[in-house]
Amino acid sequence: MHEMGIVSGILSSAVDAAEKEGASKINDVRISVGVLTEIQDFALQFAWESLSPGTIAEGAELVATFVSPVSKCSQCDTEFEHDRFEIVCPNCGNFVCEQIKGRELTIDSIDID
């Protein structure tokens, strides 16, 4: 839904880090995206293709790894994977759970020349 803003954040972090290393070109950018952020890969790729040209990341591949949601039950401490809609402890049926994975949005690494 706000992929343009996110991709401009990815691009500026990647370009800053690459320039600090004295790089002339970025080959790829690897990011982790939690499924609960509702961010869609096609929208990321679309934004990347429109924002990266003209920078040292032009032509670089944006590789997104999607992270499935995991929650921890506040009652019995069970950790379980789930989808975007149903968050219920499979052990005790409690719905009050702490989100421990699935909301990440991080830039992991870049490959540069």
């Binding site: 972090s13 991080t106 992991d108």
Partner: peptide, 16 residues
């Protein structure tokens, strides 16, 4: 050359 960054992506809204 591969460089580790491992930091949160701040989107435009977060930066503002």
């Amino acid at each position: 050359m591969e460089i580790d960054i491992k930091k949160p992506i701040l989107d435009r809204n977060d930066r503002l």
